[in-house]
């Protein structure tokens, strides 16, 4: 349902600093796929997500979502189909607005934000119910400014906001990387629960190989702007962290001993 073909992206194109960030990515994402994306720094993971969301203009290729060619769509238009959770917990929510106002904006994702009252009474009950699912007690704090929340609470709120209107695809860009281990685990469990309950199609970038193997039904590894590994189903279940590292170093043409700790 999501077809990416020949997607390429350069940074500083035409200058001496030209960098090939994505070198012709081909990827078919099936409905309901929960794909984890791994790769070293600079492999193109975040660039891929940013190109999908429309944050970066692309230099070549096509992106088709649900038979709809979105290649030329600007970011705000693609937001109708795509929702995202960022690595930086401050990015996905608006700190100067209250929790209910943030939710009200998210509840209208992809629809016009007109001159009706932003937060209506009947919205509040629904928001309270949905916040209660997070188990963080935020349902009692509808009118609190989001700037008062902790990073983990903000990330959980962003996750809820990204699913208030069901997205065709959910992009998670290392969304637990900036959180402490315990909070990261909570947010990760929440992610798993939401993806499963709403049958979402999701792409999740992570640096944690173990996490990448545990979560989702499919794993892709990027290197130098290309997909160098794409496994799913049983093949993914059988894969180990060691195995992943071996594949990684095989492609790079190095022996896999030196800096393996960095990746585990």
């Amino acid at each position: 349902m999501i077809g990416i073909s020949g997607l390429s992206k350069y940074f500083h194109r035409g200058s001496v600093n030209e960098v090939l960030a994505l070198g012709g990515i081909d990827l078919q994402v099936r409905r309901g796929d929960f794909i984890t994306v791994v790769g070293s720094n600079g492999a193109g993971k975040s660039t891929l997500l940013n190109c999908l969301a429309g944050s970066y203009p692309i230099d070549g290729g096509r992106i088709v979502i649900d038979d709809c060619d979105v290649t030329s769509w600007p970011e705000h238009r693609r937001a109708r189909l795509i929702s995202r959770v960022f690595q930086d917990p401050l990015k996905g929510t608006c700190g100067s607005l209250s929790i209910e106002q943030n939710l009200a904006l998210a509840a209208r994702r992809g629809r016009p934000h007109g001159l009706g009252l932003g937060v209506r009474r009947r919205d509040r009950d629904a928001f309270r119910r949905q916040l209660a699912q997070l188990g963080l007690g935020l349902e009692e704090r509808l009118k609190d400014q989001v700037g008062l929340l902790s990073g983990g609470q903000r990330q959980a709120l962003t996750l809820l906001m990204s699913t208030l209107v069901r997205p065709q695809i959910l992009l998670l860009d290392e969304h637990t990387a900036a959180l402490d281990p315990k909070t990261a685990l909570q947010v990760l469990e929440l992610t798993e629960k939401m993806v499963a309950e709403l049958h979402l199609t999701a792409l999740m970038v992570t640096h944690n190989m173990r996490q990448a193997l545990q979560l989702g039904n499919r794993l892709i590894m990027l290197h130098g702007g290309r997909v160098i590994l794409d496994i799913s189903g049983e093949e993914k279940d059988r894969m180990t962290v060691e195995g992943l590292l071996q594949r990684f170093y095989a492609v790079r043409g190095e022996t896999f001993d030196s800096d393996r700790m960095l990746l585990v």
Binding site: H76, A79, R84, K91, T93, L105, A106, R108, R109
Partner: peptide
């Protein structure tokens, strides 16, 4: 937060 509001369409 311009990124946030753009992501909300």
């Amino acid at each position: 937060n311009r990124q946030m509001i753009t992501s909300q369409g």
